[in-house]
Lab assay of single mutants.
Amino acid sequence: TYTYKLTDEEASRRAEDEWRNRGYDVRVRNNNGTWEVEVR
Rank of each mutant, 00 (worst) to 15 (best):
G23K: 01
Y24S: 02
R20S: 06
V39M: 02
T3F: 11
E18N: 06
G23F: 01
Y24F: 12
R20N: 05
R40C: 13
E10P: 07
E18T: 09
T34S: 10
E38H: 06
E36L: 11
V39N: 00
T34F: 13
D8Q: 03
D17I: 14
L6I: 08
N32P: 00
A11F: 05
R27E: 12
A15N: 03
E16M: 12
R20T: 08
R27L: 13
G23Q: 01
W19S: 02
V26E: 01
R29K: 10
S12F: 08
D8Y: 04
R14Q: 11
K5F: 15
N32V: 03
T3P: 06
R27W: 07
E16D: 03
R27F: 12
V28G: 01
V37M: 05
S12V: 15
D25T: 09
Y24C: 07
W19F: 08
E10A: 13
E38K: 04
D25Y: 06
E18K: 11
E16I: 13
R22I: 06
R29A: 07
R40G: 07
E16Y: 12
E36H: 06
N32Q: 07
D8P: 00
E10M: 10
T3K: 09
V28C: 05
A15T: 11
R40A: 09
W19E: 03
N30K: 10
G33Q: 03
R29V: 12
D8E: 06
E18M: 14
G33I: 01
L6Y: 15
T7I: 12
Y24G: 03
V39W: 01
R22V: 03
Y2A: 11
G23V: 00
N32I: 02
R40S: 13
T34I: 14
T34P: 01
R13V: 07
V37Y: 01
D17F: 13
Y4G: 05
R40W: 13
E38F: 05
Y2C: 15
E9F: 09
W35E: 01
N21H: 09
V37L: 10
R20I: 07
E16N: 04
N32H: 07
S12G: 09
G33C: 07
T7M: 14
E38I: 13
V39L: 05
A11L: 07
V39E: 01
D25M: 09
V28D: 01
V26I: 04
Y2K: 14
N30D: 07
Y4C: 12
S12T: 11
A15D: 06
Y24V: 04
D25H: 11
E16R: 07
R29I: 13
R40I: 11
R40D: 05
V26F: 00
D25W: 09
N21F: 06
N21K: 15
G23I: 01
V26A: 04
K5G: 08
T7H: 13
R22W: 06
R22Q: 09
R14G: 05
R27A: 11
W19K: 01
K5M: 14
Y4E: 14
V37N: 00
D8M: 03
T7G: 13
V26C: 01
R13I: 08
N21A: 13
T1K: 12
K5I: 15
E10T: 09
W35P: 02
E38M: 09
E36Y: 14
V37K: 00
T1A: 11
W35S: 01
R22F: 05
R22L: 12
T34A: 09
N21E: 12
K5H: 14
K5Y: 15
T7N: 13
E10F: 07
Y2V: 15
D25S: 08
W35H: 01
R20Q: 05
V28P: 00
Y2P: 12
A11V: 04
R27S: 13
D25N: 08
W35D: 01
Y2N: 09
T1G: 13
E36N: 03
T7L: 14
E16L: 11
T3H: 09
N30E: 13
E18Q: 10
N31P: 02
W35I: 04
Y2D: 10
E18C: 15
R20K: 11
N31K: 08
Y4D: 12
W35Q: 02
Y24H: 07
R27T: 15
T1L: 11
R13K: 11
D17P: 00
T3D: 09
G23D: 02
R22N: 06
E38Q: 09
Y24T: 03
E9L: 08
E36M: 08
G23E: 02
E10I: 09
L6F: 15
E18V: 10
G33Y: 02
E16F: 13
R40K: 10
W19L: 07
E36I: 13
R13W: 06
Y2H: 14
A11I: 04
D8W: 04
Y24Q: 03
T7A: 15
V28E: 01
T3V: 14
R14T: 08
R27H: 12
D25V: 10
A15Q: 06
V39D: 00
V26R: 00
N30A: 08
D17T: 14
T34N: 07
G33D: 05
R22C: 11
W19M: 04
S12Y: 07
R22Y: 05
T7D: 14
T7Q: 14
Y24N: 02
G23L: 00
L6R: 00
V26T: 05
S12N: 02
N21Q: 11
N21S: 13
R27K: 13
R22M: 11
R27M: 11
N32R: 05
V37T: 02
K5N: 13
W35Y: 07
S12D: 02
R13Y: 06
R22D: 04
N21M: 11
W35L: 03
E16P: 02
V39P: 00
E16H: 06
G33F: 02
N32C: 15
N32G: 11
G23H: 03
V28N: 00
V39R: 00
V28K: 02
R29T: 14
R13E: 04
R13Q: 08
R13A: 07
V28Y: 03
R27V: 15
V26D: 02
E36G: 00
S12I: 07
A15Y: 10
S12Q: 03
R29P: 01
R14V: 11
E9G: 05
N31I: 14
E38V: 12
V28Q: 02
V28A: 04
E18I: 13
D8K: 01
V26L: 00
Y4N: 04
E18W: 15
A15S: 06
D25I: 12
V39Y: 02
V39S: 00
N32L: 06
T3Q: 06
N30Y: 15
R14F: 09
R40N: 07
N30T: 07
E10C: 14
V26Y: 00
G23A: 00
A11H: 07
E38W: 04
E38R: 05
Y2W: 15
R20M: 06
T7W: 13
S12A: 15
D25F: 07
R40L: 11
R27D: 08
E9T: 03
V37F: 03
R22T: 03
R14Y: 07
E16T: 10
N31M: 11
L6D: 07
W35A: 01
R14E: 10
W19Y: 06
A15P: 02
R13H: 08
E38D: 06
N32D: 09
A11T: 10
V28M: 04
R14W: 07
R20Y: 04
A11E: 13
R13G: 05
V39K: 00
E10V: 09
E9N: 03
T34Y: 13
L6A: 12
T3A: 04
D25L: 09
R29F: 10
K5V: 15
A11N: 06
T34W: 12
R29W: 09
G23P: 00
T7F: 14
E38N: 05
Y2G: 07
L6H: 13
E10G: 08
D25P: 03
E9A: 08
E9Q: 07
R14H: 10
V37R: 00
N32K: 08
D8G: 06
K5T: 15
A15W: 10
A15H: 12
G23T: 00
Y24D: 02
E9K: 06
T3L: 12
Y24A: 04
V26K: 00
V28R: 10
Y4V: 09
N32M: 08
D25E: 14
T1N: 12
T34H: 09
K5R: 10
W35G: 01
R14N: 08
G33A: 03
E38S: 09
T7S: 13
V37D: 01
N32Y: 04
D17V: 14
